[in-house]
């Protein structure tokens, strides 16, 4: 007959909690998944990378919403045809790879003459490509007026895995910033 108080209190707690859980099941159940990341294994060849990069550039990278390839005249954003050749000489001290990487990771730090800027860093949301995806995009860009050289082992400047020594954002406007966080990967790289 006499139910112990402790039991009653425990029962009340469970019932109240269960009730709120029930309420939680009544509302629409939506699971939001992150945008799909292109999986890249370490044994991809440069040619593979170019293919993946082209797909990304056309697809979720949204490159060609702004840029064009092989178009001249009054353009709002630089045309990318022959970019690989021009990349070698754009910034003194930057080789083509570094220049391409900088224009993807930190596009506002160098703006091609005659254009107004406005490109978002594509490693950031809302586009937010991963380092490997950007690696593939660089490989693709290298084929525009040149030969792709990037492999899965190439160190991409500005990326999280970039070692010290390669030119960093330090040479652009954002001055005294330190090397990025993930120094722990140096050992592996």
């Amino acid at each position: 007959m006499r139910v112990p108080v402790t039991l009653k209190v425990a029962l009340l707690t469970v019932v109240a909690t269960a009730f709120y859980t029930y309420v939680g099941q009544l509302v629409p159940q939506k699971e939001v998944h992150p945008p799909e990341v292109v999986e890249m294994s370490a044994d991809l060849t440069t040619a593979d990378l170019v293919g993946i990069g082209e797909e990304i550039a056309n697809g979720k990278g949204l490159c060609f919403t702004c840029h064009t390839v092989g178009k001249s005249g009054a353009l709002r954003f630089p045309d990318l045809d022959g970019i690989a050749t021009r990349a070698e000489t754009r910034i003194a001290g930057f080789d083509a790879l570094t220049y391409l990487a900088q224009s993807l990771y930190d596009p506002e730090s160098y703006i091609v003459e005659g254009f107004a800027g406005g490109m978002p860093p594509i490693s950031k949301p809302p586009i937010g490509l991963t380092d490997d995806e950007i690696r593939a995009v660089i490989a693709y860009l290298q084929t525009l007026g040149g030969q792709a050289t990037v492999t899965m082992d190439t160190l991409i400047p500005f990326s999280a895995a970039a070692p010290e020594g390669v030119p960093m954002a330090a040479e652009s406007e954002s001055g005294e910033s330190e090397p990025p966080a993930e120094t722990s990967e140096e050992g592996a790289a």
Partner: peptide, 11 residues
């Protein structure tokens, strides 16, 4: 909405 919007080549 997204943070930036690109319409007709303008972001």
């Amino acid at each position: 909405p997204p943070a930036t919007l690109t319409v007709h080549d303008v972001t």
